[in-house]
């Protein structure tokens, strides 16, 4: 069963490669967006902000402070956007109707699209890391693991957002994603350290998925990897698995009726 799913999912992967060969500009733009943010924050605002204290790494420049957070956020945004899109196409836009009339089933489609999403996310992560390292904003050899972390973050958010999408009734409900994503992006210690918040709020932020993703990425790239990172990893893995379980329970019911 699994082998078949993977095999047919690969067909979809192939189709996407074919489609995106012509839409390379779109692929490229996804690579530039986090870099634009990095330059804007690092060069522009960095001058005013100066050095930022990071536990385990000491004082770092503002650019290197935001870089890991931007990579984690990009992984989240990419995964959420794509997986909601996949679900939308599957349920409403009927993009896959032609495929569903062949031996390819909905699970194959979902598996293939998610694999594609993760692959795309990995490409971006590699590109971003190369630039960041070239700028000298990386202080730790653990940074190599940042690629794996990006994949894990992508998996965690993809799983949960596809699961969430199965509960949407109309496309306007999808705005809820924006309502969750934007505050997470803005408030999960992306642009300033947790210490800015009062104690109580700090604990609230610590519970958010993006905070865990950013904390993991930041220690990998700046230093100070410790046992706490196991908590981050476990948090993200469990989140992705729960999402997958929910999705599996609902997808057949929704699509094959």
């Amino acid at each position: 069963m699994t082998a078949i799913v993977v095999g047919r999912g690969a067909l979809l992967f192939e189709r996407n490669l074919m489609v995106y060969r012509r839409a390379w500009l779109m692929i490229l733009s996804g690579f530039f967006e986090p870099l634009f943010y990095l330059f804007s924050m690092g060069i522009g605002l960095g001058h005013y902000v100066g050095k930022v204290p990071v536990a385990g790494a000491g004082l770092v420049s503002y650019g290197s402070f935001v870089a890991p957070a931007l990579l984690a956020s990009a992984a989240m945004n990419g995964a959420t956007y794509e997986s909601v899109n996949i679900f939308f196409k599957l349920k409403y836009a009927k993009t896959y109707d032609a495929m569903l009339s062949t031996p390819v089933g909905p699970t194959d489609i979902a598996a293939g699209e998610i694999a594609w999403t993760l692959f795309r996310g990995l490409l971006y992560a590699v590109g971003f890391l190369v630039v960041v390292a070239a700028l000298g904003l990386v202080y730790s050899a653990w940074a190599v693991l940042a690629l794996l972390a990006a994949l894990l973050i992508g998996f965690a958010f993809a799983g949960l957002s596809v699961a969430g999408a199965t509960f949407m009734r109309s496309w306007q409900d999808f705005e809820i994603f924006g309502l969750i994503q934007l505050p997470m992006f803005l408030f999960s210690s992306t642009f300033y350290p947790l210490s800015v918040y009062p104690q109580a709020l700090q604990w609230v932020v610590r519970c958010t998925p993006l905070y865990n993703a950013i904390a993991l990425m930041r220690t990998l790239m700046l230093g100070g990897v410790g046992w706490a990172q196991l908590v981050n990893v476990a948090y993200l893995a469990v989140m992705g698995l729960i999402g997958l379980a929910i999705t599996r329970g609902r997808i057949g019911k929704l699509l094959l009726k």
Binding site: L45, V52, Y62, F191, Y192, V196
Partner: peptide, 8 residues
């Protein structure tokens, strides 16, 4: 939030 850093 970011203001607390910039205002220094």
């Amino acid at each position: 939030g970011l203001g607390t850093l910039v205002n220094k």
